[in-house]
Amino acid sequence: MGMPISHIMASGMTGIRAAGDLVARMEFSKKMRIGEAKEYVAKKLGVESMDLSDEHVMRELREELDIGVITSVAGAAKGIAAKMNIEKLLDTKINSCDLFRKQIA
């Protein structure tokens, strides 16, 4: 366990504490290299690239955009609901959201 957590602390973007999940989605969905992925996400969020790893900036912004945070804020979007908001924000499709839409159609 110590090894992956060490990598996260040394080099990671810390997932939904900041914007690591969003940058990872652009690398995987559009095959963007790290610089391009950060630039794309930063532009969509209206922040600087450096802010994407800044918990102070991202915590408030994630709550405002309703794209999920690490704590259980009452009434805030979680799981699929948060991912549906991420789809709109990043202009990308997420498979589990597609499945959910098909199931409720």
Binding site: P4, S6, H7, I8, M9, A10, S11, G12, M13, T14, G20, V23, A24, E27, I34, S49, M50, L52, S53
Partner: peptide, 15 residues
């Protein structure tokens, strides 16, 4: 004992 990347150089860590 531990070191880290410069601020702004963080990358996604996949598992």
């Amino acid at each position: 004992k531990t070191v880290s990347v410069e601020q702004g150089m963080e990358v996604p860590v996949t598992h």
